[in-house]
Write a protein that binds this DNA or RNA. Structure first.
Lengths: 253, 253
DNA sequence: CGTTTGGTTGACCAAGTTCAATCAGAGTGG
DNA sequence: CCACTCTGATTGAACTTGGTCAACCAAACG
C-alpha cells in the first residue's frame, strides 16, 4: 500500500489505460504492485528471444524501445515502437514464446510480468484484464496501419504518418504536444521501421523540411504544418482507438 | 445435439484450434452451435465497416476472404487472407469497431458471432476462450510477418513467402499438400497483399516459374522446388506457431 | 459471337538503393 | 586545449527495382 491514488498519473501504463477504463483505487493498487517489479536497462540493448519458452512480458514505465524481427541476411524490420505504457510480448504468449526481439532506444524502466501473473490479475480484476486486451488490440491495429504504410504509401507519406502517430501516442500518455515532441530515434531506426535505407530517410526528412511541414533535428520533432503532413500521409487517427463510450457499449462495463 | 464427435474434422475452425487444444465432446457441441449460426455469400463481395459500432465477428467455415484497408487515393492493402477456420474482426472488438473491411474471394460460409456470445462462451468454456486468444495471437503474428515482408523482402521474396505461408496454413486445416494447393487469388489480389502492382506480380510469377520454383496457373499453385522457395523467401515457419506442448507449459492447461 | 475479366508483354520512367565521400558533434586520452 | 575516434547525418553520382502506360491475348459467359 505504498502507492496511493495521489500518484495516479505518474505511471504511463495507468494513464494509457485510462483512455479505456477509469481504474478504481484498489485496481490502481494492484496495478502499481505489478508495475513496481521492474528492471532498468541502458540505451541500445537488445533482447533476442528466438522462441524461448516463457517469453517475458514487459510493460514500459519509462523510455523508448522497439520490437523487431531480423532476416538471415542481416536486414531488420521494426514492428512497433514501444513507448511508456506499452506492452511488449503480450501478443505472443499464446504461441509459446515470441519470435520478436526487443531493443531499447533510450535507457528503459520496464515492469516484468509473467503470463501467470497477468492471468491471475485478469481473473481478480476483470476490468484490468479487459484493459490489457484493449491495449493488445490497439497495438495490433497500429501494426496493421504500419502494414498499410509499407505496402501502399510513398516514403514521404510513411515518414509523415509515423511522426504523426508517435506524436498522438505520446500525447495519450501526457508527453509531447501538438507542436512537437522529443524523439530519440536515429535515422537508422526510422529506416528500419519504414522499410527504407538510412540514406533515403535523410533525403525524405530534408524534403519534408523544405516543404516546411516538419523539422526533425537534435532528437526533436517540430511540426510546422500539421495539416499538410496529415494530407500527404493520408492520416486518419481512427486506428488509434475511439473514446471509451464506444467499447463500453459492447461489453457494458 | 445434432452434431457429434463423429464429424469433428468437417469444421475448419475446430480442426484449426485442435493444434492448440483437444476439444472435449461438450466443447465441440458448444462450438458447433456457434458455428451453425452462419451466413453465406457469393464471391467478390465487400463489407466496409468504417468504424461501425458492434462490428461483427466472422468465423469462416468455407471459402476464402481477406481483410483490407483502403487509402483515400483508392489504393488497397490486404492485411491478411482469411482462410477456413480463421476469424475476422476479433482483434478490433475492444477498439469499439473495426476500421478494416472484409472481402470475399470465393463464395463464403461464415459463422456470425457477437462479442457478447464470444464472451459468454469464453466464460463457460475457458479452454475455448484460450483457443480464441491463441488464434488471435496467431493472426497477429502473421500480420507481423507480412510487415517484415513488405519492409525488407524483395518482390520475389514476398511472393515466395506468401505462397509458402498459404500452403502451410491450408495444411493445418487439412487442405492442400506440400506439393501444391488450390488458390483462388487473382494477380490483383496478390498485388494488394504484397504491396506491388498487378503487372509486377505477373513478372515475378514468371520469374519464379522460369527459375523452376513454383507454377501458379489456373488457380493452382504447384511447388517445383520448395527448398529453393524457402531459400529466396528466407522462410522460417516459426511465426505460424509451435506445437501445443510449448503453450501448455505456460498456462498448464 | 461480343463482352468482360484477368493474364501477358514491351518500352519507358521514377522512386528508392548503393557506394562512396564528407561533415558535425560528443567523448576520450594525452 | 588538442588530436583522435566513434557515431550519426549529409550529399552526390550511378544504378536497380518496381511502377506506369499501353497494347494485346485467352478463357468464360451471356
Amino acid at each position: 500500500m505504498v502507492n496511493t491514488i495521489m500518484s495516479v498519473n505518474e505511471d504511463a501504463f495507468i494513464s494509457k489505460i485510462s483512455r479505456y477504463i477509469t481504474p478504481s483505487a484498489s485496481e490502481i493498487v494492484a496495478l502499481k504492485k505489478i508495475l513496481a517489479n521492474d528492471v532498468k536497462c541502458v540505451a541500445r540493448v537488445e533482447l533476442i528471444e528466438d522462441y524461448e519458452i516463457f517469453g517475458p512480458i514487459f510493460i514500459l514505465n519509462k523510455g523508448w524501445g522497439y520490437s523487431f524481427r531480423d532476416l538471415p541476411n542481416g536486414l531488420r524490420q521494426i514492428i512497433d515502437f514501444i513507448l511508456p505504457g506499452d506492452i511488449f510480448g503480450l501478443q505472443e504468449i499464446f504461441l509459446g514464446g515470441s519470435n520478436l526481439g526487443f531493443a531499447s532506444i533510450t535507457s528503459v524502466d520496464a515492469a516484468v510480468v509473467s503470463p501467470r501473473t497477468l492471468l491471475g490479475m485478469s481473473r481478480q480484476w476483470p476490468r484490468l484484464g479487459g484493459a490489457i486486451l484493449w491495449s493488445a488490440s490497439l497495438q495490433g491495429s497500429i501494426a496493421a496501419e504500419r502494414l498499410v504504410a509499407l505496402g501502399r504509401r510513398s516514403a514521404a507519406g510513411r515518414m509523415a504518418h509515423l511522426l504523426l502517430e508517435l506524436s498522438i501516442r505520446l500525447e495519450f500518455i501526457g508527453q509531447g504536444s501538438p507542436s512537437g515532441f522529443f524523439c530519440p530515434l536515429t535515422q537508422h531506426d526510422l529506416a528500419n521501421a519504414l522499410g527504407l535505407t538510412p540514406v533515403h530517410v535523410n533525403r525524405v526528412l530534408r524534403h519534408l523540411r523544405q516543404l516546411e511541414l516538419v523539422v526533425f533535428r537534435n532528437s526533436k520533432v517540430e511540426f510546422l504544418d500539421r495539416q499538410g503532413l496529415i494530407d500527404i500521409a493520408h492520416f486518419d487517427a481512427a486506428y488509434l482507438g475511439r473514446n471509451r463510450d464506444a467499447s463500453r457499449k459492447i461489453f457494458g462495463n
